[in-house]
């Protein structure tokens, strides 16, 4: 799957024509399309997910609420996990014995509001086809080699539940405050293809 193709100019022209048609028929306005793009690009980043993780690391009661009911807990922080259709959020916790990794084999379901736009690899056939079959081999391609005795669970987002991984808190971070902890959290750690 490539990002751009030789037919970019052709598609660009066709998309413009479609947008004009939809505007003429009163279905969309160019301004609304611009606004939606801006909102997506500015409002969505993995910073939300990172804040959630930092709070969970420092507040055991919040962590318990987060694992019990993700949507309610992230709402406490003024965040939303919402999408086009009503969604649930399940946060899955990595421990010394268990590692979680998230995929959508059928399309590309992803907690956009918490993690921002998904990386291209998440949408690739290579990732979607293989991580359910051979997760350790795929994780190794990300540079993550797990001890043999760690149990791996792959979460395939086949319905309207969205998944986020709660990574393990790195050692030696006891003195860090919440914003400093949030700065340690990477997008891949929230998907489960990296540890911290």
């Amino acid at each position: 799957m490539t990002g751009t193709t030789h037919s970019d100019a052709l598609i660009s022209r066709r998309v413009r024509r479609l947008e004009t048609l939809l505007e003429d028929r009163g279905i969309v306005t160019g301004a609304a399309v611009d606004e939606a793009i801006d909102a997506f690009l500015t409002g969505a980043s993995a910073a939300g997910g990172a804040r959630v993780v930092a709070r969970a690391w420092t507040d055991p009661a919040f962590r318990a609420r987060l694992l019990a009911d993700g949507i309610s807990a992230v709402t406490e922080l003024g965040l939303s996990a919402g999408g086009v259709q009503p969604q649930r959020l399940r946060v899955v916790e990595n421990t010394a014995d268990t590692h979680n990794v998230v995929v959508c084999t059928l399309c590309s379901c992803y907690p956009v509001r918490l993690l921002g736009p998904s990386p291209s690899w998440y949408k690739s056939e290579a990732y979607r086809s293989r991580v359910v079959r051979e997760p350790r081999a795929v994780l190794a391609e990300f540079g993550l080699v797990l001890p043999e005795d760690v149990a791996v669970t792959v979460w395939d987002s086949t319905s309207e539940t969205r998944y986020m991984v709660l990574p393990r808190r790195p050692e030696g971070t006891e003195d860090l405050d919440e914003p400093s902890l949030a700065a340690l959290v990477t997008r891949n750690a929230l998907i489960g293809t990296a540890a911290l």
Binding site: V132, R133, E134, P135, R136, A151, V152, T153, V154, W155, D156, S157, T158, S159, E160, T161
Partner: peptide, 20 residues
Amino acid sequence: RFAARDLWGEGEHDVVLDLF
């Protein structure tokens, strides 16, 4: 939750799907 062994005949991991 499904055991990889039940899905693929091998493997030690689990796969969880959300199913109607």
